[in-house]
Design a protein around this nucleic acid. Structure first.
Lengths: 150, 150
DNA sequence: TATTGTTATACTCTATAACTATA
DNA sequence: TATAGTTATAGAGTATAACAATA
């Protein structure tokens, strides 16, 4: 099979998308036997880090819409990883359970390995440049979204 | 609403994912009135660049599986942007039509604007570092996938 | 009136397995 | 036997609109 030319390779967004797919696939592989989707894992980690946070706050932190948080939280509760208590008539405070905390610790341990696998491919200086550039790239439109959400 | 802490922000993959989502959203907005999905647009551009390529070759070039190429090509043909002729009993040669070529030119024109909006947020030197780093990040697992495909 | 959580729904991309017809 | 295209299907993420209960 012939190898085609692909001018898209010159594009920042396209390269980002391709590289991200590789990172994500490795992330999923790293945490495969947790039987949790990436969105569930990240949700668990944010709740572990922020006891008594609300569902909306978690969604805001990881850019998942309120409506899409519902089944994620439901599944975490169903599996006994997260518990919630009512704060007032409409808000719920989320906390990880003991089991959820254990999962979070083990997840972080593995994520550290995953992270190292990719970081070690870049020179220290280049890695720092990349890590500084990424928030810049997402900044302007994030602000647009925040404004639109209001 | 309280702003939560989010240790995920330190992770390369997470930052890539967030930034890519922003880039992608802008890409979609840029090409919204084409009434084409991102995957269809990129497919069209690759075919325009590689006359008489096969469906599998395009999929290989942009990391879309053969099975998922089928409806994309079908829609491009249905809309009169791509035509195909039989090469042998199992291969089809793809070409853009006149209309498809026009779409490709206009798409590239807009993509240039989209690209510039993001590039200008980074210093020239940092941009080059990022553009060099992205293929490195995706390289190792890309090779795994290629091996697995065989 | 605005906010929190919810339901319902649709769209896009991705993944696998299995089939056909060819080479 | 391997390849090109296809079908069917499932999973994951994301988006919007509308609603109830509450602040």
């Amino acid at each position: 099979m012939a190898v085609l030319t692909n001018a898209l390779d010159k594009l920042l967004g396209y390269q980002m998308r391709r590289a991200t797919a590789v990172l994500m696939a490795d992330f999923v592989r790293t945490l495969a036997d947790f039987d949790m989707r990436p969105a569930e894992i990240t949700t668990l980690l944010v709740i572990a880090e922020n006891p008594d946070c609300s569902q909306s706050e978690v969604g805001e932190a990881i850019a998942i819409k309120r409506a899409n948080m519902v089944p994620i939280i439901a599944r975490l509760i169903e599996r006994g990883l997260v518990a919630r208590t009512r704060v007032d008539g409409r808000s719920l405070a989320l906390r990880v359970t003991g089991k959820g905390a254990e999962h979070a610790v083990e997840a972080w341990r593995r994520i550290a390995g995953h992270e190292a696998r990719f970081r070690e491919r870049l020179a220290q200086e280049d890695l720092e440049t990349v890590l500084a550039a990424l928030p810049v790239l997402r900044a302007a439109v994030d602000e647009d979204e925040a404004a639109g959400e209001t």
